[in-house]
Design a protein around this nucleic acid. Sequence first.
DNA 1: GACATCGGAGAACGAACGTTCTCCAAAGAC
DNA 2: GTCTTTGGAGAACGTTCGTTCTCCGATGTC
Lengths: 211, 211
Amino acid sequence: MAKSATASEAKTATKTGGKTSRTRLDDETAQQQILSAADRLFYERGVQAVGMDAIRDAAGVSLKRLYQLFPSKEHLIEAYLRHRDALWQSMLDEHVDARTDPRERILAVFDFLRDWSSQPDYRGCAFIRTFNELRATSPHIAEMATHHKDGFRAELVELAREAGADAPEQLADQLILLSEGAITRCAMAGSSAPATRAREAAAAILDATLN
Amino acid sequence: MAKSATASEAKTATKTGGKTSRTRLDDETAQQQILSAADRLFYERGVQAVGMDAIRDAAGVSLKRLYQLFPSKEHLIEAYLRHRDALWQSMLDEHVDARTDPRERILAVFDFLRDWSSQPDYRGCAFIRTFNELRATSPHIAEMATHHKDGFRAELVELAREAGADAPEQLADQLILLSEGAITRCAMAGSSAPATRAREAAAAILDATLN
DNA sequence: GACATCGGAGAACGAACGTTCTCCAAAGAC
DNA sequence: GTCTTTGGAGAACGTTCGTTCTCCGATGTC
């Protein structure tokens, strides 16, 4: 529909006095706008369903510039996943670090999932979705997705260890199942209720596991 | 359906005499071959990554015939999901009905997931993957996927009820999280170990929930 | 035999995609 | 001023995809 509004962002008025001359965006700004547009579109529709033209329109840059900064769509998808990884880390840490009690810190993971899945543009896990879309055609990107999950698992193992679990890896693996389940169910059901259920189940598992 | 006794319908490949002439497949056989090929390719690579040409090649039928039996790719995807739904139901029921103890019947769900995810061509849940691929472009197919999940939930609620759970729906929702988590993790990790972890976690939840 | 019908193989078509190229106006150097 | 450089807008290119169409040999009927 009306995507002219986004296109008008193409050239920002520079700080040069009253004259709003159309000047070239510096690389950093252009990169941010492209990444922001790619993140929004890739996450909403999936990487395969979004063309480079759509990203150019949403970012307000020329195709030439887009390819200067990201030499191929695969490069852009990689940047998208790196961006999502950083976003995920910061959101998760924010919730976990707000607590000090080890048991509460574990449950904070599920508070994070509840908050995250409550956002209207929530579409589940970008890594799982990209993995499923590209595992057959792009092993490198598939490996980025598994690497992200490895990081999440490591964080859960650490939290389980801090909580004094006898078998922190086993506990972490069980908590991962609840997390992944919640992430997926919230996306399909369009509700954050599964995250709440996951928190309850996690609490039950912690009760049964921690002494 | 109407089985008109026209001779043209039944032109199966019978080797009349020494000549092994390639004769037309009857509709039923052609439909099965197409569906089998579509199932294999769609499930392995995802629906978007598989073209109609690839399905024609794998099924060994002409494009003309393919479109006679399935008027569009969307029709074929629908048939694929219906086929997967039946497959899932039969595999699940086979495991659950092998047990009589209500608690064991619940845990049989996770035995099924372990067996299923051990298959070399295992690629996770076709419904979640198709939902994620097409939710933005094909609401009807997305709804088929959610409908499948509703059916699975109903089955778990029934099993929880038979096991005498005080809150069968809540228990079912927690078990769904473990199931979905296991389905996804097994696919990404390329291992059935997450299904085993899910069974352990489910047992812990049942211990805490059932009296 | 002649004639009509059917369907397979694959070309063809229009759209969409990832990527590259052309044209030209604007900015900077002298 | 002129010359050079830059990069934006978008056309163009080559491929792929979903879908349709053409050709032609094989078959059924008389």
